[in-house]
């Protein structure tokens, strides 16, 4: 809270103040940060904490942790990768701490200063996704349309496809995206991201017609997603 803000609200009546109060408690839906990380293709980097070497953080994550906690986990990973990380306070802005990381150029151990008092709200809490050792959900057999599958299953398959593509195995990546489509259907949360990988895989194999066909289909079913925009750029 600063003087500017107090000055404005001082001038507003109860009605005006209430509009700003409503905005104060507006926040993204729980779990949207998870989905974003996955859509960006960096969910695995954060969820990679669920390895034997990081059993304790993984256990914390499995219980459902906060952004601030996950930040610390990511900081640990950053340190492990050789970066010197300083976390400094950004609490004035109701913001989680800003991480400023610089490459490790000298031998001394990195300094970490954690003075932030991040106000992680319930809506900012995140649920770990794609834990490699998480038990698979029991199969649900229904004759009707498939029920919304757990996001973690979609994440796992999408990560597989991306890894295969990144390693140059476009054929396997394509097969994985087909499996994704068959298993989760076109209404799946990460369907556009999966189709983006499918398009990239087809282009990597030189099959531009197949890529364009997927792109056209995606335009019809999901015309306004960022993944669709990316697909559009790739095929045009």
């Amino acid at each position: 809270m600063n003087a500017n803000r107090e000055l404005l609200r001082d001038r507003l009546d109860g009605f005006g103040k209430s509009l700003f109060d409503a905005a104060d408690i507006d926040a993204p839906k729980s779990g949207s940060a998870d989905k974003l990380l996955v859509a960006l293709g960096i969910g695995a980097a954060v969820t990679a904490v669920a390895t034997p070497a990081a059993a304790a953080p993984a256990a914390a994550a499995a219980k459902g942790t906060t952004v601030a906690t996950m930040t610390k986990l990511a900081v640990v990973l950053a340190l492990a990768s050789g970066g010197a990380v300083a976390v400094h306070e950004a609490a004035k802005h109701r913001e989680a701490p800003v991480v400023v990381a610089t490459p490790a150029t000298t031998s001394p151990p990195p300094a970490i200063a954690t003075t932030a008092k991040a106000k992680a709200t319930a809506s900012e809490s995140i649920t770990p996704v794609a834990l490699p050792d998480a038990p698979p959900e029991p199969a649900k057999s229904t004759a009707s349309a498939p029920r919304a599958p757990a996001l973690s299953e979609q994440v796992a398959l999408l990560d597989d496809a991306r890894s295969q593509l990144a390693s140059g195995d476009a054929t396997s990546a394509l097969a994985t995206t087909r499996r994704f489509e068959q298993r989760f259907g076109r209404n799946a949360t990460l369907y556009p991201e999966a189709m983006l990988v499918a398009v990239q895989a087809n282009l990597a194999r030189g099959d531009r017609d197949a890529a364009r066909s997927i792109a056209q289909s995606l335009e019809k079913t999901h015309p306004h997603t960022p993944a669709t925009s990316k697909v559009r750029e790739l095929v045009n």
């Binding site: 960096i42 913001e95 989680a96 991480v99």
Partner: peptide, 24 residues
């Protein structure tokens, strides 16, 4: 500097709520 995937993930998590509020 180069950013690792983990650092990018941390950046996204730290600023997601802020970005969401600003965009809205």
């Amino acid at each position: 500097r180069a950013w690792t995937q983990a650092e990018l993930g941390a950046f996204v998590l730290q600023h997601h709520a802020f970005a969401w509020r600003m965009v809205r």
